[in-house]
Amino acid sequence: MSISLGRRLGITAIAATSAVIFSATPALAHTNITIGTDQGRMTFIDDGDVFEVCDTKADGAGVVGKLWFNSYIGGDWYVEASGDDGGDDGCDKFAHNVEDTGEFQMRLYWTGPGYDKEIARSRTFNE
């Protein structure tokens, strides 16, 4: 059984288009998301759209969790909200409404001597 060249090209074009569309779409949150290393962690708690930032290493530095956003309309990524933790007991939290107006991404930074170093990054997500 042979398939014509035109039909093969058509099937290939459809498959390629589908792959691009589905790979570019951010994942829906609908679950909690946690990122981190031994220095700290950041968790998105979907129930209430709360972000928790925790310093987990007693090294004299803290961590900063930043929520980045990029609109579907276009433009660059920018920081929508942030929270930090370090030097105290427990974790710190901040609330931010995660909507379906673009892509969100969590990034966690270690605030060591002289600079903030990115230590973890989540997949993109939205509601």
Rank of each mutant, 00 (worst) to 15 (best):
D85S: 13
I45N: 12
D46N: 14
G112C: 06
I45S: 12
L28A: 11
T31D: 15
P113W: 10
E52Y: 00
M106R: 11
I21T: 06
L5D: 14
G6S: 13
L108V: 02
F94G: 01
Y78K: 04
G112N: 15
M106I: 11
D38H: 07
D92Y: 02
H96S: 09
E118Q: 15
K57F: 07
A29M: 04
C54D: 14
I35P: 06
T12Y: 13
I21N: 01
L108I: 09
L28Y: 11
W77V: 02
C91K: 00
G75V: 01
G102V: 03
D88A: 14
K66T: 09
D46M: 04
V20M: 13
D88R: 04
P113N: 12
F22Q: 09
I73E: 11
R123F: 11
I11R: 09
A19I: 10
G62M: 09
A15N: 07
T124W: 10
C54L: 06
D49Y: 02
D116V: 01
C54Q: 10
G6W: 01
A61I: 00
I21G: 03
W77E: 01
D100L: 05
H96W: 12
D92A: 13
G6R: 14
F51D: 03
T124Q: 13
E103N: 09
I33R: 14
D88I: 15
T43K: 10
G90P: 00
E52M: 08
L108K: 06
D89E: 10
G74I: 04
A27W: 05
H96R: 05
S4I: 00
G112W: 06
Q39F: 10
R121N: 13
I33S: 04
R41N: 11
A58K: 14
D100E: 11
L5C: 01
F22W: 10
Y109R: 02
D55K: 07
F125D: 15
D88Y: 07
S71T: 12
V98K: 01
G10A: 11
I21P: 02
A61E: 04
S82C: 04
R8S: 09
W68S: 03
S4D: 14
T12C: 15
A29N: 14
G86V: 03
I35D: 06
D55P: 02
S23F: 12
G75E: 07
V64Q: 12
I119F: 10
